[in-house]
Each structure stands twice: as C-alpha cells, then as structure tokens.
C-alpha cells in the first residue's frame, strides 16, 4: 500500500488535537529538564525529541483496574486515549502486549483500549544515553503500529497515515491537512538518517552485544555467577518492571467494600519476592539472582520461543530507572565475555 503523507502546520495541529479532545483523553509529552513525561493535553504541544520516562503501556493496560463487582463485570465505558508523541520503542512493544492479551482468550479491557485508542506516534530527533533500539533492529522512527505518525521538519509536521483509523481521522478533518512539498519529504529522510547514524555511532562506542546472540547468551548463561553479582545491587523496587513497555504481568486481587465484593487487577512483576510463591510455601524465585535471571529469560528466551521476537525494544528505561545501576547492556556484555572465555 502506498503510504499517504500529509502536512500540517503547528497551529493547525493544535486545532486538530483540540478537536480530538472532545472524544479522546489526549495525552502529550511535557518536558522537564532533560526528560519528558505524559500529561493531559492543555492547549499546548511541543514536539518531543525522544521517548517519555514512562511507557505507553498504562494507556492500554491501566496499572490498576476493577474487574468485577459482586461477580458482575464492570462496564467498559471508559474514555479512550489519544496518545501523541509515542516513539518507535513504545509502539513496537504492542506486538508483545497484543500477543499476551489478544491471543486465544481476549482480554476485554486491553481490547477496548487497543481498539479505541488513537496512536499519533512521532520520529525521534535525538536519543538518550540509554537508548539502544537500533541494536534490536528497531528504527528510531515508527514503521508500524501507529494510526498517524508525526515528523517534525523545520517548523511544520509531516503526518504519515499508518492505519484505516488514521486515514479516517484525516478525512474527517481534511481542512487541517495539506499536500506536502517533495522537499519536505526529502528533508525528513535526511533527518531520520542523521538520527540513525548518530545513534549507531553511540551504540558502536558503547560496544553493545549483537542481537543475534542474546537468546543464546541467556540460555548458556543460566548458571553464570553474573546473576548473583548483579542482583546484589537490586533493591527490589520493581522500577524496571513498572517502566518496561513489554512487561505484562498482573495480580488479581479481591476486596470487600460496603458489603460489595470487588475484584481488580494491578501490575505485578517477577522482581517481587512472592511473585512465584505457591500456597505450600515453595518459591522458585525466592532469591534476587533468580528473579533477575528470570526477567532476562522471559524477555530473551520465552518470547523468542513463543512469538519469535525479543520482548525488548531497546527503550533503555530499565537502565535509566534502576537505583542499583543494573544495566542490561552490561549484563549482556558480561555474559558474552564469559561465553568467549569458556570457549577458549
């Protein structure tokens, strides 16, 4: 299919978002020092050069939600989100979340948001020190999983259509959009190429391990002391799992309020001590080292086995948020180093 690309001025884009606000909960990035965080659209919008601190998972899979009251399903009549400024690493994670929540039995809540949310993603014009999407074969500009994609060229936006839903939005608001001159398209390609080259240089200087061997490294490194040594620094805060765009684990909980039986779910994760504990007391993930290893096995062995892709998009959030400075890039470097040594 020919990719349709339109152009929109910054002012017209604000009007477009304003219009979307009547139906959607429009969320946009807001800059604080060197970071971006998600806020509700309030009439302003500034293009974000790179991803937000937290992932977009929260807009598809709320960190806490009610499932049923007195054994009756709660109604899914929530306001869908329009997510503006999601980056490639974020929207690629939906491949994992879709597999978990939409394969076989369909998770109603996730399905609601996945069907009704709008994703207006955008190119990265820069990156953080922790970014390594390219290392996982993900470009710093969206190639799939978006409805519309925004590219900042000079002081105007190019808008690429990525879905029927996106096409419909353009048609319904055609007065905001115009045909882009060819020079813009060429300019954009140059900007994309430039970011890709710069990021590539950074990754080479960081000496990252080739993605092809990550699967083998976690497999062969099962008994490695690295897990123990790295886990010494884990303070069990769970920041890595809460910020990861591909983490999907949740805990079902029951409660009683005003004689109503409530069932809900909340984000959970394998870095918490009781994650795998059974009633009889056995806990296969009792130690931090086993839990740390489990996280890597899940992302770099389980998902490749089940789905054929790594459950990591190189967003670098787990590195950025870890108080113990546990660094995925470093863990793979160490595993590779040990692997080479053991082969000598």
């Amino acid at each position: 299919m020919m990719k349709r690309i339109y152009a929109i001025t910054k002012k017209a884009f604000l009007n477009f978002l304003e219009k979307l606000s009547s139906v959607y909960n429009v969320v946009i990035p807001s800059q604080i020092e060197n970071n971006y965080r998600w806020i509700n659209f309030n009439g302003e919008f500034n293009f974000n050069d790179y991803r937000c601190i937290s992932s977009i998972r929260q807009f598809f899979f709320p960190c806490q939600e009610l499932i049923s009251i007195n054994y009756k399903d709660v109604e899914l009549k929530k306001r869908p989100f329009c997510i503006v400024g999601a980056k490639s690493c974020d929207i690629q994670s939906l491949n994992i979340q879709d597999y978990v929540f939409l394969t076989d039995e369909i998770d109603g809540s996730y399905n609601f948001f996945r069907k009704n949310n709008i994703i207006i993603s955008s190119d990265c014009r820069s990156f953080k020190e922790v970014c390594f999407c390219l290392n996982l074969n993900i470009k710093p500009y969206p190639e799939a999983n978006f409805d519309l994609n925004l590219s900042l060229v000079d002081d105007l936006y190019l808008i690429e259509v990525g879905s029927e839903k996106g096409e419909k939005l353009i048609k319904e608001n055609s007065n905001f959009f115009q045909e882009p001159p060819d020079t813009w398209l060429e300019k954009n390609l140059k900007l994309r190429k430039n970011v890709e080259e710069q990021l590539s240089k950074q990754l080479i200087s960081q000496g990252l391990v080739n993605r092809e061997v990550l699967y083998q490294l976690v497999k062969s490194g099962y008994e490695n002391d690295i897990w123990q040594e790295e886990a010494e620094h884990c303070v069990e805060c769970g920041a890595c799992i809460m910020n990861c765009p591909t983490c999907h684990c949740f805990l079902i909980f029951d409660d009683e309020k005003d004689k109503n039986l409530l069932r809900g779910r909340t984000w959970d994760g394998c870095q918490y001590k009781n994650f795998a504990k059974v009633a009889g007391g056995a806990n296969p993930l009792l130690f931090r080292s086993k839990r740390l290893r489990n996280r890597y096995l899940k992302k770099f062995e389980f998902f490749p086995d089940r789905l054929g892709i790594y459950a990591c998009t190189g967003c670098g959030r787990c590195i950025e948020c870890c108080p113990g400075k546990i660094d995925l890039r470093n863990i793979f470097k160490r595993l590779e180093e040990d692997n080479k040594l053991s082969k000598l």
Binding site: V100, D104, H248, C249, F250, L251, F275, V278, K298
Partner: peptide, 19 residues
C-alpha cells in the same frame, strides 16, 4: 506441575515454566 497459577489463561505471567 504446581506453580502459582493465577489468571488461568496464560496472561498474568505467574506460572511460567520454561517456554
């Protein structure tokens, strides 16, 4: 096999055993 099965549908992640 005894694991911490919670959702029962392969979604909540608690009872992983290898693949």
């Amino acid at each position: 096999m005894e694991k911490n099965m919670s959702c029962g549908l392969g979604k909540c992640g608690h009872c992983r055993l290898g693949k």
